[in-house]
Design a binder for these strands. Structure first.
Length: 801
DNA sequence: GATTTTACGTA
DNA sequence: CGTACGTAAAATCT
């Protein structure tokens, strides 16, 4: 059935979809099926009354199998068939008749018909002029179908509908008064900087640098004192300097003076300030706002690239990802960063999250220092390790080839599938799916191989294959490029993922407040991420001669937090009683969470718990804390599913508070979809309602609290460096551990110093508690010993506990 | 050549 | 039906 336009003639809003759904074509009404119900939900959230809107589609019929390309001559959907062209003309007539203030293009075909553009992911949220009927304005928004399919789009789509509502009050396209002066000469640029200095009321200054790799040399420098103005100058033309040396010096001198007088604003300032320091030796001391950080704190679940933030915060033309190579790019970035900053400044207070923002801003210097400093590799050990493991790997590879009888690429999952499942006819292992309606896919990952090796015990190929893969992976961590000084570097990302991929706006950004670590663009040496180096590869990170590496990590950190969240009195008491004791004292007195777990589960005496039984306790607690299932437990312990189920039930009987806590988390989510960790960091969970969402939420408070707790301490350690009577290098941040390097004679002082800075009380429902810290003294990142210090008497004096 | 999929390292 | 993160190689798309 044909589905025609409906709605009141005086409507201010018109919704245009791509084509009716199958259900719509039965009822003859647009947006009446399942996506229609999603649309209702979205409109309600945005406070738009559906009955006041005109509803229609570009295509008026449901295409066979829902494939919109049916209405086009070509696959790429650029040349419409006559029928579709007729409908487009009909749409044009409707637009001329009703002339709504805003037309919402719900999907790529609607966007194409109305504006000629295709990429909804780039243009969504931006106000565009209508090409079909001049003088009307369009806002592209993800279709309800896309939201139904990918629930993570929900929140930003509601924001877009709210923007549409605002624009429905008036017909005009907001005029852009922006002035962009790209690529100006030296005189003009310096005059501008002087003008800024003469106007103290222009209190904010946005800075944006474009760089060329390798080396992150500054190619273009953009400035803006007002959201409607941006200016830029080129420092490089290709690889050659664009300015005479004298002129460039004058430029940087003026710039250095200017930045001391302004509140500085940047997008991802850790990078720009890093480059300015590394290449120009200009220190941006007080960054007023990093819009990446502000956006992360306000909307941790949304993308944070400038294009997205512009679409949400501003009423400007889309300036990112457009087809034309725009020379305004850099000055527009600077101006829009300033505009976004003004919006976020208000949003931070509205959401009452400024303390978290200030905290994250204060971490920029320490994160940057750690990136630029890097950590040193012992090249002799590195060479030796590479040699050993290359030999081992090659030997295993030739053995594998002999067994198989021909050469295959064991790194190819496809070739492995052919070998194992087609030729050897082994039982196919399927990959775990996120939901039942996902398609089943085969897998040959390590877990699958281990399962096969249990099913076919006498075949050596499985273990050989696993060992080969291990060696191969390890070599990637060993065989890395080093800087001139034999160092490797990593970029610590305070907001988690750097997130500047403009294409992939679908991916919601999580970031639970923990730092992530990725390859440094400024100093591209090492394997990039330094938070996932395996133990064997850690051997090549040696302490300097006469120095030691101190590892300080929070003891049983997540378990302590969970004990308090769940109100598990017995466990809380155990942690409190064992606080400040040495490890040998803890062992002697039986303060062992995993032993306690299994003893309680089985109702046996502590003394009867063997090492093997303890492992069961450890694994069961772990599985349950994160709400894993019995299958996982069975696999991990190598036991029957039925046995695993019994263990899980025994655990819950001994620890009844866990399930109650899980229920309370679900209730919190139901109320606001928002959780707040013990240090005030908020996170809104936007995934589709269900177990996946719950599991993610259960892990949020423990994980993010520890992340923040560690960074509070890290900041204190950084701030203490200048007043320490000896040299200390901060080497690594590993989520719940800090690594520093000091001379041998300073071990004692360092340990006391770190402990004091790291023991910071947490509060939950009025009850204060402290997560204990363990120390190791190491000769390399891998090798060293645990310190067995009893702090109890010492700290009783100092008023701890 | 660019993007997606698969697998795997850490906390 | 642990989660969080980033990277590399293979596979696939254009």
């Amino acid at each position: 059935m044909q589905v025609n336009l409906i709605g009141p003639a005086d409507a201010q809003i018109m919704l245009v979809g791509d084509a009716p759904s199958e259900e719509d074509s039965k009822t003859g009404l647009p947006f009446s099926g399942t996506p229609g119900r999603t649309l209702d939900n979205l409109l309600t959230q945005a406070e738009i009354a559906r009955y006041k809107c005109l509803l229609t589609n570009v295509a008026k019929e449901y295409p066979p199998a829902g494939r919109i390309s049916y209405f086009f001559e070509d696959k790429k959907c650029t040349i419409p068939k006559p029928k579709l062209q007729y409908w487009v003309d009909e749409l044009k007539a409707d637009l001329e008749l009703y002339r709504p203030n805003i037309i919402i293009a719900l999907g790529p075909i609607a966007l194409w018909a109305l504006t000629g553009e295709k990429k909804i992911s780039i243009f969504r949220g931006y106000i565009l002029p209508c090409k079909l009927v001049k003088g009307l304005k369009i806002i592209p928004i993800y279709s309800p179908q896309s939201v139904t399919y990918d629930w993570k789009l929900y929140f930003q789509t509601v924001i877009d509908f709210r923007k549409a509502l605002t624009h429905s009050k008036f017909p005009e396209i907001p005029e852009t008064k922006s002035i962009f002066l790209p690529n100006v000469g030296l005189q003009r640029f310096i005059t501008y900087m002087e003008e800024c200095m003469e106007h103290p009321e222009w209190d904010k200054l946005a800075i944006d640098v474009e760089t060329v790799q390798p080396g992150s040399h500054i190619e273009e420098l953009g400035l803006s004192h007002h959201p409607d103005f941006g200016i830029s100058i080129f420092l490089l033309k290709g690889r050659a300097p664009a300015l005479p040396e004298k002129d460039e010096l004058l430029l940087w001198q003026t710039f250095a003076k200017l930045i001391t007088m302004k509140k500085l604003v940047m997008q991802n300032g850790a990078y720009d300030t890093g480059v300015l320091w590394f290449n120009q030796h200009i220190l941006c001391k007080d960054l007023y706002m990093d819009t990446l950080i502000a956006a992360h704190v306000c909307w941790p679940e949304l993308p944070r690239d400038l294009g997205f933030l512009g679409s949400v915060c501003l009423d400007v033309k889309p300036w990112k990802g457009g087809s034309a190579k725009d020379q305004d790019y850099n000055p527009a970035d600077a101006a829009n960063t300033l505009g976004i900053a003004e919006v976020l400044d208000i949003e931070l207070d509205k959401q009452k999250v400024r303390p978290t923002f200030e905290f994250e801003m204060s971490l920029i210097p320490v994160a940057l220092m750690m990136q630029l400093q890097g950590i040193k590799v012992d090249t002799e050990i590195q060479a030796k390790l590479i040699e050993i493991w290359t030999k081992k790997r090659d030997k295993m590879l030739s053995e594998l080839n002999t067994i198989v009888g021909r050469e295959i690429n064991f790194n190819s999952s496809q070739q492995m599938q052919v070998l194992l499942y087609d030729e050897l006819k082994l039982p196919v292992q399927w990959k775990r799916r996120k939901s039942k309606n996902q398609k089943r896919t085969k897998t040959v990952d390590a877990a699958a191989i281990r399962k096969l090796s249990r099913l076919v015990p006498d075949n050596p190929i499985f273990n050989l294959f696993l060992d080969y893969k291990k060696a191969n992976t390890l070599l990637k961590f060993l065989d890395v490029k080093l800087s001139e000084n034999d160092t490797v570097h990593t970029s610590y990302n305070i907001t988690g993922a750097a997130s500047d991929d403009e294409e992939d706006t679908k991916k919601t950004k999580r970031s639970f407040g923990r730092w992530s670590s990725s390859g440094s663009i400024i100093l591209p040496f090492g394997s990039g991420n330094l938070q996932n180096i395996p133990p064997e590869a850690r051997k090549m990170y040696k302490a300097r001669k006469g120095w030691k590496i101190i590892e300080a990590d929070y003891a049983q950190a997540e378990a302590v937090i969970v004990a308090h969240l769940t109100g598990d009195h017995k466990l809380k008491k155990m942690f409190k009683d064992s606080f400040g004791l040495s490890n040998s004292e803890k062992t002697a007195l039986g303060y062992d969470i995993h032993k306690m777990t299994i003893a309680d589960m089985l109702g046996i005496d502590f003394s009867l718990v063997t090492k093997e039984i303890r492992t069961i306790g450890k694994t069961v607690r772990h599985a349950n804390s994160y709400s894993a299932g019995p299958t996982v437990l069975a696999n991990r312990l190598g036991i029957k599913l039925s046995e695993a189920k019994v263990y899980m039930e025994l655990y819950h009987r001994a620890n009844p508070t866990l399930r109650i806590w899980h229920t309370s988390i679900q209730n919190d989510l139901k109320r606001s979809r928002t959780l707040t960790n013990l240090l005030g960091r908020k996170h809104r969970f936007l995934d589709r309602w269900g177990d996946g969402l719950f599991r993610s939420a259960y892990s949020y408070i423990p994980q993010s609290t520890i992340g923040d707790l560690l960074n509070v301490a890290l900041k204190k350690v950084y701030d203490s460096l200048s007043s320490l009577p000896y040299e200390m290098e901060i080497l690594l941040q590993l989520h719940d551990a800090i690594y520093v390097m000091i001379k041998d004679e300073n071990i004692d002082h360092t340990v006391r110093h770190l402990r004091k800075l790291m023991l910071n009380p947490l509060t939950y429902y009025g009850e204060e508690f402290i997560v204990d810290v363990d120390f190791k003294v190491k000769t390399s990142w891998a090798e060293g010993e645990e310190l067995d210090i009893s702090w109890r008497s010492e700290e009783l004096k100092n008023g701890f506990v």
